[in-house]
Amino acid sequence: MSARHLFAAGVHDFGLGRLGATTGALLGLAGLVLAGLALARPAGRLGSVNPSLVARAAMVAGLIGMALGGLVAATADGGLGTGNGLGGSYVAMLVGLIATALGRLVLTRSRRTG
């Protein structure tokens, strides 16, 4: 039995579900990186960029990533392994949630110090 018969979708098949889930996960990851950079550096170390602006950008990226992941999960026709991007949508929602929470933490800290 070949590997092609083990899964409903091929490894190299890339449909709209996988594209949406990947985009959501990448947006969530971008928000996570922004929030992590803003959290790791003191308020004046980001150069001329306002930390609250970076935190808001991280929150927006995280929220959009969660929304895309939720949309893909809601519209997926099959379960995991069917090529509809369901697994990636779960990752996008989780990473987006973490990015949003860290962005909120940075925003709260920047308001306290400012």
Rank of each mutant, 00 (worst) to 15 (best):
Gly65Trp: 03
Ser48Met: 14
Gly47Met: 08
Gly47Asn: 02
Arg45Ser: 15
Val60Pro: 02
Ser52Arg: 14
Gly70Ile: 15
Gly62Glu: 04
Gly44Cys: 08
Val54Tyr: 00
Val72Glu: 01
Ile64Asp: 01
Gly62Pro: 01
Ala58Phe: 10
Val54Lys: 02
Val49Ile: 07
Gly62Gln: 08
Gly70Pro: 12
Gly69Ile: 10
Gly65Asn: 11
Ala57Ile: 04
Ser52Pro: 03
Val60Cys: 10
Ile64Arg: 00
Ser52Asn: 04
Ala67Thr: 13
Ala55Asn: 08
Leu63Cys: 13
Met59Phe: 09
Gly62Leu: 09
Val49Asn: 06
Leu63Met: 15
Leu63Ile: 11
Ala58Cys: 08
Gly69Asp: 02
Leu71Asp: 02
Ala58Met: 07
Ala73Val: 15
Leu63Pro: 03
Leu63Gln: 14
Pro51Gln: 09
Ser48Glu: 08
Ala58Ser: 02
Arg56Phe: 10
Ala57Met: 14
Met59Cys: 12
Ala58His: 10
Val72His: 05
Val60Asp: 00
Ala55Ile: 10
Arg56Pro: 00
Val72Phe: 10
Ala61Tyr: 09
Val60Ser: 04
Gly44Val: 04
Asn50Arg: 11
Pro51Tyr: 14
Leu68Val: 13
Ala58Val: 07
Ala57Phe: 05
Ala73His: 12
Gly69Met: 13
Gly70Phe: 13
Leu53Asp: 03
Ala73Asp: 12
Pro51Val: 08
Arg56Gln: 11
Met59Ser: 09
Gly65Lys: 04
Pro51Gly: 02
Arg56Lys: 11
Leu53Val: 15
Pro51Ser: 05
Leu71Trp: 14
Gly70Asn: 10
Asn50Ala: 07
Ser52Trp: 07
Ser52Thr: 13
Val49Tyr: 00
Val49Lys: 05
Pro51Cys: 11
Gly70Ala: 13
Gly69Ala: 10
Gly47Cys: 01
Gly44Arg: 12
Leu46Ser: 06
Ala67Ser: 11
Val54Ile: 14
Ser52Ile: 14
Val54Gln: 04
Val72Tyr: 04
Gly44Glu: 13
Ser48Ile: 05
Ala58Ile: 03
Leu46Glu: 04
Ala57Asn: 05
Val72Ala: 04
Ala61Thr: 00
Ala61Arg: 09
Val72Gly: 00
Leu46Phe: 07
Met59Ile: 12
Ser48Gln: 06
Arg45Phe: 06
Ala58Pro: 08
Ala61Ile: 05
Ile64Cys: 09
Met66Lys: 09
Leu68Pro: 08
Ala67Arg: 03
Met59Lys: 09
Val60Lys: 02
Val72Cys: 05
Ala57Gly: 09
Leu63His: 02
Met59His: 01
Met66Gln: 13
Ala58Asn: 03
Ala74Thr: 06
Asn50Gln: 11
Gly69Arg: 15
Leu68Cys: 11
Gly62Trp: 07
Pro51Glu: 04
Ser48Gly: 07
Gly70Tyr: 13
Ala55Met: 07
Val54Phe: 01
Ala58Trp: 06
Gly47Ala: 08
Ala67Ile: 14
Ala57Asp: 06
Gly62Phe: 04
Gly62Lys: 04
Ala61Lys: 07
Ala55Cys: 02
Arg45Ala: 15
Ile64Lys: 04
Met59Gln: 14
Val60Leu: 15
Ala67Leu: 14
Ala55Leu: 12
Met59Asn: 00
Leu71Ala: 10
Met66Cys: 15
Leu63Thr: 11
Ala67Glu: 03
Ile64Phe: 01
Ala73Met: 15
Ala58Gly: 02
Leu71Glu: 08
Gly70Thr: 14
Met66Gly: 12
Ala57Val: 03
Gly65His: 01
Val60Ala: 12
Asn50Val: 11
Val54Asn: 01
Gly65Ser: 13
